[in-house]
Design a binder for these strands. Structure first.
Lengths: 220, 220
DNA sequence: AAACAAATTATCCAAATGGACTATTGTTTA
DNA sequence: TAAACAATAGTCCATTTGGATAATTTGTTT
């Protein structure tokens, strides 16, 4: 039995996909969420044994968008597979979602059978599902000679400011507030304020969790 | 009418693929070649109006291999689409072929219908055909963090006990004492004792510093 | 000049952390 | 057998941290 969670702000979209999957009784819907924030909160309070195996995530959502939610959750829950399920196929979004940790990228226009098949295959073989047109775009990205430009765009999944990146770097060195403050000549209180802002952007609530994301996502 | 050329050193392979395509009369076989050298020569003496639209190319061939043939020909004939058709799916080959200019990568195990469909689609929409398992590998290439991942340490340079390694692993997930205690059914006080022992063995005095060593030395 | 986003500083409070102790129970080693 | 060690669990205490909230400064952009 494959446990699924669906994240989409439109109730109708959620209904369509859950209906598609419910026709196949290998799938169980664990929960639904309306945005990234809601999703991360529901994950936190979920016992580990009830955690979904696969997340189907829309990208365009209010509050916390899909990309940053995938970025956080794929570090926090490395065993869970994140599949983008959206109507958009523009290069920038695809690239950002994949770099954030998505293992698959399906277009909503795919039929229920195709989606179910691909999720089954993901479960059995670990191969992420990719719509053919998306696959081709990814190929083109690899083909692109100047990936330097792309890297800069993707680098900032979490929209950290320069100062925040600097603080995160110092945090990773094991320094505490007052040490960081002394090193860059600001008050420890300010350092703390920056840290809390960083945690909010990474959707975590402790230094260890922030560092996990920083290390696994190559932020430092 | 889509003009096709097939490049493969094994006569049997050529026969299999031409048979598959001949069932669909949208395709015409322009010529066959036994290796990259042969292919490039035949292309040279071919009038422009007779040039194939799509090349199906094996990679493993004598004399001039598929990758270098694609590299040359995709520059010489920029309007022609090069599709790799091979049994190999190792990352290195995929990457090299794509960088050389291949617009698609199909496995020979695909059925005739699938191959025909994808080539038709390439002709109509320009989207290169990619076998799902190949698509997934390409995605993983994009996903690969730029910074080389540290190999996990096999030998225990810091002499951590099994329990301590377990605790360190849980610490890296961002859990706190009481959460770890609950997870492995021991008192939070004991978790704390383990942590302090870990810090002593790593010669640090905070969680962040311990995690830094853990991440950069491949302890987790 | 006004508006706006960062960056800065501060205070209060509850919770978590690191460190130093002591102590019991098994296991392994000398 | 005695000593050493690992894992367990607890107490006390000072420090650090995370969170909320408010206020000021500093650049940019409009």
């Amino acid at each position: 039995m494959i446990r699924i969670a669906v994240v989409d702000d439109k109730i109708n979209n959620r209904k369509v996909i859950t209906d598609k999957l419910s026709r196949n009784n290998f799938f169980t819907l664990v929960f639904q969420a309306v945005d990234g924030e809601d999703f991360l909160q529901q994950m936190q309070k979920l016992p580990q044994d009830d955690q979904p195996h696969i997340i189907l995530m829309d990208l365009e959502m209010p509050h916390v968008d899909g990309v940053s939610a995938i970025g956080t959750a794929s570090s926090l829950y490395p065993n869970i597979k994140f599949v983008v399920l959206t109507i958009f196929d523009d290069d920038e979004k695809i690239f950002r979602a994949i770099r954030a940790g998505a293992c698959g990228y399906l277009l909503k226009e795919e039929s229920g059978e195709v989606i179910a098949d691909m999720l089954m295959n993901l479960w059995e073989s670990g191969a992420g599902p990719i719509s053919p047109s998306i696959a081709y775009k990814i190929l083109q990205m690899v083909q692109m000679p100047s990936n330097a430009k792309v890297e800069k765009q993707t680098d900032n999944i979490f929209q950290l400011s320069d100062r925040e990146k600097e603080i995160l770097q110092l945090l990773s060195q094991g320094l505490e507030y007052k040490e960081i403050g002394a090193k860059i000549f600001i008050s420890p209180n300010t350092v703390k304020k920056h840290c809390i802002s960083i945690y909010q952007k990474l959707h975590v609530n402790s230094r260890s969790q922030a560092l996990r994301i920083a290390y696994t996502k190559g932020l430092i």
